[in-house]
Design a protein around this nucleic acid. Structure first.
Lengths: 117, 117
DNA sequence: GTAACCGGTTACCTTTAGTTAACCGATAAA
DNA sequence: TTTATCGGTTAACTAAAGGTAACCGGTTAC
């Protein structure tokens, strides 16, 4: 049995973890991009190809979101030796760890639609 | 095996579900409040008591967030027959369904701290 | 009558998230 | 030399989220 102080610390740690997850995976585009890369995992996902295939995303947002995903080790960026230069993005092995979170959000959201109708 | 159209619909449904989940459970306070109500489930959680115990939350935000949680059937609001009147909030049975999502966010966030350090 | 408690609401402000459109350098094709 | 492609960046904007502080009606205790 934990004492009060340990309970408090554990609670703070969990709250910080939730903040981290929502900051890194939340927002309008992050999971959208991760899912797209995962659904096209055997393709050469260049910047332009991703932008064409994700409906509504601007170059600015795609660039910004990919940078943040790369910083968090969820995707890799590889400059290809083509003319003109293309840049290929891919989900990392570690990036696959977001899919349980993705699934729990999907599951809850789908069920919630049933619940409130 | 699904055809292309069915895949597309399923993908749109899942993306909408993620948007719903993040809209209803995301933000700075929603899960914070749900966790608090769950941790104090046998107590009389009045507005003032919740506000005292959740560090940093303003009356405005607490009021707004509780209203939205109530609309989504996640908490109940009960005006008590006391002087002066108090209002008691409680998590619903359905509200408990957020904890698997909560757990997956906690788990991913905790692991991510390890991963990037 | 005045002060205090409860459960809020309102107005105003700041910060963050996201959009739009123009622009950039490097390269290559016509 | 003009035009196009790729992978962005920049500036300027709007929209959404959240914070701060003052205020409110109803009630009770002094």
């Amino acid at each position: 049995m934990q004492n009060i102080e340990e309970q408090y610390v554990s609670c703070e740690r969990e709250l910080a973890a939730i903040r981290d997850s929502l900051e890194i995976l939340g927002g309008k585009w992050k999971l959208r991009i991760m899912r797209h890369l995962n659904n096209h995992i055997n393709e050469n996902n260049t910047f332009k190809k991703i932008q064409r295939e994700i409906d509504g995303i601007s170059a600015k947002m795609l660039s910004k979101e990919l940078q943040e995903l790369e910083i968090n080790l969820l995707v890799t960026r590889k400059v290809m030796d083509t003319r003109p230069v293309t840049v290929s993005y891919a989900i990392t092995q570690y990036g696959l760890s977001v899919f349980p979170v993705n699934e729990s959000l999907v599951k809850w959201g789908l069920n919630h639609r049933e619940q409130i109708k």
